[in-house]
Each structure stands twice: as C-alpha cells, then as structure tokens.
Design a protein around this nucleic acid. Structure first.
Length: 254
DNA sequence: ATGGCTTCATAGTGAAGA
C-alpha cells in the first residue's frame, strides 16, 4: 500500500506530469493540494483512464484539494466540521479501512499578517477535529502540505528562517500537538540522508542550490505507523521542465 | 536588495504562494 501527497500548484498545468508519475509510481492513494480549479473542470476522466477514482473540493484560482484512489472512496467530507472557511483546504474519506485526510494548511504569509492568525486558528480547528476523527476511526492518515517545517533539520538554513513563517515556534508547536494525538511523522520513522526537502522557491535557483524546506508530510496513527516500511521524497519531479515548486512524497505500508 | 518565479484572472498589472 503506497500513500502519497503532492502539492501540484495547478492540476491543469501539472496534469501531464501527474499522469506520467501515477503510471510510474502506481500509488494506491494520492492527496493533492493547490489544484486551483473548480470541481466542474477537475480532470476526472483523464484520471479515471489512469486507473484512479477522484474526490475533489475545488475553487476558482486558489487552494483546492483532491484525493485519488485505486478503489472507490466512502464517507467523504470536504471541510472541517463547525469551522467556517470559504477556502477549500480539506478532504477526508474512508479508503481501504483507513480514514485518509488531505490538508492544505494556510501559508500564513508572514508572522505579522492576518493570514498568520488564520493559519493558527485553522491549525487549532484541525487539531480539535482530528481528536474526534482518531476516536471515530481506528486508522488515520493525515497527508498534505502543512506549510510547517517541524525541526531545524527540515530547513536549509535554520538561522535564516528563525522566527519566520513556516518555521516559527507557534507553527511548530501546532505541528507537535498533532503528533501528540498519537500521529507519527512517517518520513522520520526511517533513516534519511541529510538536507532532504519537499519545497524549493522558484526564485534564486533555490532547487539547484538545494535551498529548501520540508513542509509536506504524511502523519500516521499507531496502527498504520507500525505497518510503514519506507518513506521518501521524489525529488526528480522538481527537476522537470515547468515543475511544481513542491516534490511529491510517498510512504509505503505493508 | 521586501526582490528574485510561477500561477491565475485578466487583457495592465495584481494577488498569492512559501
């Protein structure tokens, strides 16, 4: 069982890369973020021909999440219950006995901005809801673009990023609170080389210089963590022509 | 150096991303 997450930064632009990647990688479940398209224009048919059922919560121009699965999904929800939010950032569904939750955590812009406050409230609402989901479902997988680098080793230059959005202490504390619900960062269940990231700025030749952050994550509840056998970042996708600024990550379960 | 790319919405530039 292969679980994957990828912020595609426009599913319309990235569709050829996505289809090629699905054909090569054959994941069972894929969570996508920043699809940036309304539901009516989601490429359901192309993905069906590639062997995937699609579930999506989209909006015009911004945000938008989707879950692709080899098997049909059940009991889907497209928002955090009782948290008013115009932005499409959440999708959850039952797949193969797991509760799969796809998230696109707000970026936050800068620690002084209103968007940062929104990010922290959003994370608090996610935490409260997850507490319930974990009680309701025996196996929970939380995949997505968290827009948080949890530790120093997840940042190319921790001193440069100290206190900055994506690496500020309140954001990292919110990430730790998710872990305290019993969720494991699947990437860190395994020995990994140093300086592996999931996002690199489009500017400044950041990818070539490996000036990145690890902000996309796959968190697993204990039963799923016990089944994890490997976790990796597919850096090759970031090196293609016209790439997303994020690379996909994959965790394999027994 | 508050920029630097890329996408979308738009038909000039501006918002947003991270």
């Amino acid at each position: 069982m292969k679980l994957a997450t990828w912020n595609v930064n426009s599913i319309k632009v990235r569709l050829p890369q996505l289809l090629a990647w699905l054909g090569r990688e054959r994941p069972d479940v894929v969570c996508l973020q920043e699809t940036k398209t309304e539901d009516l224009t989601f490429p359901t048919q192309d993905l069906r021909e590639a062997g995937y059922h699609s579930l999506f919560a989209g909006q015009r121009a911004y945000n938008g999440v989707a879950i692709l699965a080899r098997v049909p999904v059940e009991d889907a929800v497209g928002s955090i219950p009782r948290f008013a939010d115009e932005q499409k950032r959440v999708l959850a569904a039952n797949i193969d006995g797991m509760r799969v939750i796809c998230v696109y955590v707000p970026n936050g812009e800068s620690v002084a901005s209103d968007k940062y406050s929104y990010k922290l409230s959003w994370l608090a609402a996610l935490h409260a809801w997850l507490g319930q989901e974990i009680k309701a479902y025996p196996q929970v997988a939380l995949l997505g673009d968290y827009n948080i680098a949890p530790e120093d080793r997840d940042v190319h230059d921790p001193r440069l990023w100290d206190g900055k959005v994506l690496f500020s202490e309140p954001e990292r504390a919110a990430f730790r609170r998710l872990q305290e619900l019993g969720l494991s960062d699947s990437f860190r269940l395994f020995e990994q080389p140093e300086r592996l990231f999931t996002w690199w700025d489009y500017r400044m030749n950041a990818f070539k210089r490996n000036l990145g952050l690890r902000i996309d994550h796959i968190l697993l509840s204990p039963g799923l963590a016990a089944r994890a056998r490997a976790s990796r970042i597919d850096k090759s996708m970031r090196g293609l022509e016209r790439p997303s600024d994020h690379a996909p990550m994959v965790t394999e379960l027994e």
